[in-house]
Nucleic acid binder design. Structure first.
Lengths: 155, 155
DNA sequence: TATTGTTATACTCTATAACTATA
DNA sequence: TATAGTTATAGAGTATAACAATA
């Protein structure tokens, strides 16, 4: 054996980092034929689920900062997948909608991502998948609550 | 409800991304008091487990490119946590070792990371943790094997 | 005064090509 | 010629401050 990471292997954080980087490169390869990346696909899929969404809301859902969303939407709008239209009731804001082209691409990409996801889950039975899903949700919540702890440090 | 990510929630990949970003910011906050980040800590811990390791081997274990390791080791060496010494049998290579100071810091940091890890696992019983661990391993392997598929495309 | 989207900017992580010194 | 470590560089992703238009 040439070297080991046995200390790190004890941590879930390490396992998640490695699982995520495996998934990330794989899913980006899956999305490349559609001209999409993980982030642009995510934005497209959420807008498709929520027509009329505002940019601030989308940023909140995807947990990214508003400035970082701008280029993503520029890219999607430039590819005619999404349109920004001024909101009638608040002319500062935009309503985000998916175009027909965007809807079609989103549906095909979603199929491809679903197939990719199934590949990543190969070798797990249904109960293992369900447990994994719940565990990831729990970790996300445990992380967010320690975020709060940090932020509420001066109340 | 202001907006939903229901399509994405169906994918493990999405769950892992969110769990990972929760962990990443949290673990970096945990390591900051030690002057470490996730990457520098990982390198330090692996060198501690494998005295005499070469940089190429370390890069392979951590799944990072050799050039990206250089600055990480510069940082660790600059902080007197790690030393690079020329290998006697191959004067191109360095043997990596942790200093006494590095060993002490690594042990304290490992405790902190372990505590952080335990926090992330709150609410899970032992069997759930074990299943999560196995599932992450499986995903990592499923991802790597599709890496291979890509690379072996021209044999 | 506060909020929406934006610009500018910077830092981290990642990826590749090309160099040097040894082998 | 091949390998170990390095340099330079470029691309993503992420984070913050400050601005214009609107509320």
């Amino acid at each position: 054996m040439t070297g080991s990471d046995r200390t790190l292997r004890g941590f879930v954080g390490y396992g998640i980092k490695r699982a995520f980087s495996a998934i990330q490169s794989d899913v980006n390869a899956t999305l490349a034929p559609f001209g999409l990346r993980m982030l642009t696909y995510s934005a497209l899929a959420v807008i498709r689920d929520n027509p009329g969404l505002r940019q601030t809301q989308l940023a909140e859902i995807l947990l990214i900062e508003r400035p970082n969303l701008v280029l993503i939407l520029d890219e999607l709008e430039g590819a005619d997948l999404v349109v920004r239209t001024r909101a009638r009731d608040d002319r500062r804001a935009y309503e985000l909608k998916v175009t027909l082209k965007g809807r079609r691409l989103c549906d095909r990409a979603t199929e491809a991502v679903a197939a990719h996801d199934a590949r990543m889950l190969e070798g797990m039975d249904e109960s293992m998948r369900e447990t994994l899903h719940q565990a990831l949700r729990l970790i996300e919540m445990n992380g967010r609550s320690s975020d709060d702890r940090g932020k509420v440090s001066r109340p």
